[in-house]
Lab assay of single mutants.
Amino acid sequence: MQAFVKTLTGKTITLEVEPSDTIENVKAKIQDKEGIPPDQQRLIFAGKQLEDGRTLSDYNIQKESTLHLVLR
């Protein structure tokens, strides 16, 4: 499924993900596309910070959801 990641600069990245993907996995995909190390990434969805060990389905993130990427 497709999900979108919006950065603070307003850029939107499109990712191909599965509901079973972990947040860690998603961060690795963002690193592949953008070169941002996962340890600098914080992903926010519905106002919550997403934890590495959880999956997209844990957070009820469905296709075409938009996550927000904040860098630390």
Rank of each mutant, 00 (worst) to 15 (best):
L50K: 00
G53F: 11
I30L: 07
L67Q: 01
G53W: 12
P19I: 08
D32L: 13
T55I: 07
L8C: 14
L69K: 00
I61T: 03
K11S: 07
L43F: 03
A3G: 02
T9N: 13
I44E: 11
S20W: 14
I13V: 06
T22D: 03
K6W: 08
V5C: 03
V26M: 06
T66D: 05
F45E: 01
F4S: 04
E18I: 11
S57K: 12
D21K: 01
L56E: 00
N60T: 05
Q40V: 11
K11V: 09
Q49W: 15
I13Y: 06
E64N: 15
M1H: 05
Q2I: 15
T7C: 09
F4N: 05
Q40L: 13
P19N: 06
G10R: 03
L71H: 09
G35F: 04
E18Q: 13
R54A: 08
D32I: 13
M1C: 04
Q2Y: 13
V70L: 14
P19E: 08
N25K: 15
E16D: 11
V26P: 00
K48I: 15
K27E: 01
L56G: 01
G35Q: 06
G47T: 04
K33A: 12
E24S: 12
L67P: 03
A3R: 02
T14C: 09
Q2L: 15
I30Y: 02
K6G: 04
D32C: 08
V17Y: 04
Y59V: 03
K27V: 02
V17H: 01
G10F: 04
D58M: 06
Q31S: 11
Q31V: 03
L8F: 13
V26I: 13
D39C: 10
I61A: 03
E34W: 15
K27T: 02
K6D: 04
V70K: 08
A3E: 02
N60D: 10
T9D: 14
P37W: 06
T55G: 02
I61W: 06
E16G: 06
F45W: 10
I13K: 00
L71N: 07
D32F: 11
K6H: 12
E51W: 06
T7W: 11
Q49C: 12
Q31I: 02
Q49T: 15
V17F: 05
R42G: 07
P19V: 08
K11A: 09
R54W: 10
V26S: 00
K29E: 03
T12F: 09
T22C: 03
K48V: 14
K11M: 10
D52N: 11
K63L: 08
K29S: 04
R72Q: 14
R72S: 13
L15Q: 00
Q41L: 06
D58V: 04
L50S: 01
K33M: 13
E18M: 15
I36D: 02
E34M: 15
E34G: 06
L56T: 02
E64I: 06
A3P: 02
L8N: 13
R54D: 05
D39E: 13
G47K: 04
L43E: 01
T66Q: 07
K63S: 15
I61L: 07
V5A: 03
L15M: 05
D32G: 09
E51F: 07
D39R: 10
G10A: 03
I13Q: 01
E18K: 14
K6I: 15
I44T: 10
Q49P: 12
R72D: 12
S65Y: 08
R72F: 12
L69R: 00
E51D: 10
R72T: 14
T22P: 05
Y59S: 02
K11D: 08
H68V: 13
D39S: 12
G53M: 09
L8M: 13
T12A: 04
P37H: 12
F4T: 07
F45R: 02
L8D: 13
E34P: 01
D58C: 03
A46V: 06
K11C: 07
M1G: 04
Q40T: 09
D39F: 10
I23L: 05
I36T: 08
Q62A: 10
T55W: 03
G35A: 05
A28M: 14
T9Y: 13
K63D: 15
R42N: 13
S57W: 09
T9V: 07
D58S: 14
V17C: 05
T55R: 11
F4R: 05
L8P: 15
D32K: 12
L43C: 01
K48E: 13
E64A: 08
K11T: 08
N25V: 14
S65M: 11
Q40Y: 08
I44S: 10
T12N: 05
I13G: 00
K29W: 04
K11P: 04
M1P: 02
T12S: 06
V5S: 01
E24A: 15
M1R: 04
L69T: 01
L69Q: 02
T66F: 08
T12E: 05
D21T: 10
Q2M: 14
I61R: 02
T55F: 06
G47V: 02
D21L: 05
Q2N: 11
K33D: 03
D58I: 03
H68R: 08
T14Y: 09
N60C: 06
E34R: 05
D21A: 06
I44L: 13
D52P: 06
T66Y: 08
E64V: 06
K33Q: 11
F45Y: 13
S57R: 13
G10M: 04
D32Q: 14
I44C: 11
V17M: 04
T9H: 12
L15N: 00
D52A: 07
Q41T: 05
E24P: 02
T9C: 12
K33R: 10
D52W: 03
L69I: 07
K27N: 01
N60S: 08
Q40I: 12
N60F: 07
T22M: 07
L69Y: 01
L43A: 00
I30P: 00
V26R: 00
D39V: 09
L50A: 02
G53T: 10
L43S: 00
V26K: 00
F45N: 02
E51Y: 08
T14W: 08
S20E: 11
A3W: 05
L71M: 09
G47F: 05
L8Q: 14
K63W: 10
T55H: 05
A46T: 05
D39P: 06
K6C: 09
Q62E: 12
G53R: 09
E24H: 11
T66R: 06
I13T: 03
T14A: 09
I44H: 11
G35V: 02
I36G: 02
A3D: 01
P37M: 08
G47L: 04
A28H: 13
L67S: 01
K11R: 11
D58P: 00
I61K: 03
R54Y: 13
K63Y: 08
P37N: 08
A46H: 14
T14R: 10
E16C: 13
G10N: 06
T22G: 03
P19D: 07
E24W: 15
I23R: 00
T12H: 06
D32E: 14
Q41K: 02
I30H: 00
D32H: 12
Q2C: 08
E24Y: 15
K29N: 03
E64Y: 14
M1T: 04
Q49Y: 14
H68T: 13
E24M: 13
N60P: 04
T55N: 05
E51L: 11
L71Y: 09
E64K: 07
I13S: 02
I23H: 01
L8H: 15
T12P: 03
D58R: 02
V70N: 05
K29L: 09
K63P: 15
K6L: 13
D52H: 06
L15K: 00
L56P: 00
Q62M: 12
K29M: 13
K63Q: 12
Q2D: 05
Y59P: 00
R42T: 15
P38Q: 13
Q40R: 12
I44D: 05
E64C: 10
L71D: 07
